[in-house]
Amino acid sequence: MSGAKRPKEYEKLIVKGKRCDGRKIDELRPLTIKVGVIKRANGSAYVELGKTKVYAAVYGPKELHPRRLVEDDKAVLSVKYSMLAFSVNDRARPGPNRRSTEISKVVKHALEPVIFLEEFPQLNIELIVDIIQADAGTRTAAVIAGSVALANAGIPMKGLVSACAAGKVDGEILLDLNAPEDNFGDSDLPIAMTSTDKKITLMQLDGVMTKAEIQKAIILIRKGNDYIISKQIEALKGVYQ
């Protein structure tokens, strides 16, 4: 993260309080959420956060294979996050890798706390997230889309989950890093929160921050997540009205 050589255009990432894409320090990228975009799936969503574009689909509850993974007292949520080959500058090799395995795991852990998995013992709820274009913030976009797709599939949940990141760039704490800020900044802190009691279900940190800076970042993230939740609810309501 730190130490990467900056090209001329990104030598200064904040000029007079404005970021390289014109945003203020506490402003999210433009967010679009669409629901029910994949008709074969039980539930689906499309999320666009700036140039990051993500599809999520939910299949199930259905039978779980292989059978040895079955849990007797609850459903198993399986999450498959993947980046499509053409979603990044240098072609990404298709198929799972260590990064996608870890992200699938943290996204699963981000969503499980709000799902009433005990309603479907021995069954499987499958969430597939395809990143069709990656431009920073793909795991948070995956959480936003995944939570909406689960709701669209009618999976009983105690609330939604929203997610966004903040990070330290050129000495400032910024909300929702774009690709240059992510690549040339000092740190990145993605956090997912539940809509009901704003508890933290995903958190990772890459790069150095003090405790006070982390607390400052969480204040920005809370604000960002409040807005994201309102957009998630609006998108879901749009389908049923």
């Binding site: 699963k108 852990h109 499980e112 933290i200 990772q204 790069g207 921050m209 003090t210 405790k211």
Partner: peptide
């Protein structure tokens, strides 16, 4: 943690944490 602060974090497991609990983990680490 390093001398200058926190350099990496990861929440793992399917549960929820309050911000206070996260701060406890940070204090423990420091």
């Amino acid at each position: 943690s390093i001398e200058a602060g926190i350099c990496a974090m990861q929440k793992s497991g399917s549960c929820e944490f309050t911000e206070e609990q996260i701060m406890t983990a940070i204090d423990n680490s420091i």
